[in-house]
Write a protein that binds this DNA or RNA. Structure first.
Length: 243
DNA sequence: TCTTGCAAGGG
DNA sequence: ACCCATGCG
DNA sequence: CCCTTGCAAGACCGCATGGGT
């Protein structure tokens, strides 16, 4: 049994101050995927940053300092790290791919569409290209894939507390919701929904007005697998006590 | 996310 | 070392 | 007129950077 966790840390430095290492030590996931690390390559190289014990670590960095970036920690060494060269993924350190033999892991931090749909075209291109990459593994090479991370999209009305009010807001624009529908229809399964059909389960809450206490949130983080791999998924859930 | 202010439309 | 503005979410 | 409805805009918090002193 392999436990894979996804976590948007909103600053790796920040969560280090909030007990990140202690949490990893007690929870002991096999693979831990992070988004929004906001680190620079030299933060790792110069050995200044603390890392969890017993894990190998892999990083992707944005060109822009203090922005975006992903990482994953793994107890076991992957068979291979698959290079991610397309600027759409690489320039902002948004995608990592690793071959774990039983499946291919894709850790991803999907772009925020921003106000006025400013980055929606980029986001749609990102999704199209990601789908191409996945199809190559699944259809051409008959591999299984697990795609996890912060998709920055609430898919349907039950995936956020205020659907009507947010129809014209980033994360719930009709275009990105339809792109995610297309993604799922291409043979990739939202594993959380295999186990839970009800609304009210969220992974992100606005920083304003104590939204988390009142559970006025959005489900924008996902673990997705190709159809053939669904039978191997034992569980998919949201950790509610982690900040 | 929530409050505010303004404008349009119906009675 | 500290403070403030900016970018981003 | 007055009262509703529907909007858009703005403030809000937290992390990280960078410039100034």
């Amino acid at each position: 049994m392999v436990v894979v966790i996804s976590w948007n840390v909103n600053g790796f430095r920040s969560v280090l101050k909030k007990g990140f290492l202690e949490w990893v030590k007690s929870f002991q996931p096999d693979i831990l995927c992070l988004q929004e690390t906001k680190l620079k390559p030299q933060d790792i190289k110069e050995e200044g940053i603390q890392l969890p014990e017993g894990y190998l670590h892999y990083w992707a960095f944005a060109k822009k300092p203090g922005y975006s970036g992903t990482a994953f920690f793994s107890k076991k060494e992957p068979k291979a790290i698959i290079p991610v060269n397309d600027p759409v993924f690489a320039d902002e350190g948004r995608v990592q791919i690793a071959d774990f033999d039983k499946f291919i892991l894709v850790n991803s931090y999907w772009p925020n569409s921003q106000d006025e749909r400013a980055r929606l075209p980029y986001k749609l291109e990102f999704i199209d290209k990601l789908l191409e990459v996945l199809n190559k593994f699944v259809k051409n090479e008959k591999r299984n894939v697990l795609v996890c991370g912060d998709f920055n999209i609430a898919h349907t009305e039950i995936d956020l507390a205020r659907p009507k009010e947010n129809e014209n807001h980033a994360g719930f624009y009709i275009e990105e919701r339809e792109a995610l529908t297309k993604f799922f229809n291409a043979g990739y399964v939202d594993t959380f929904r295999l186990f839970c059909k009800e609304g009210g389960h969220y992974t992100w809450w606005s920083y304003r007005t104590k939204a988390r206490e009142r559970n006025i949130g959005w489900r924008i983080d996902y673990h997705v697998v190709n159809k053939a791999f669904v039978k191997n998924v034992k569980r998919s859930w949201i950790l509610s006590d982690v900040y």
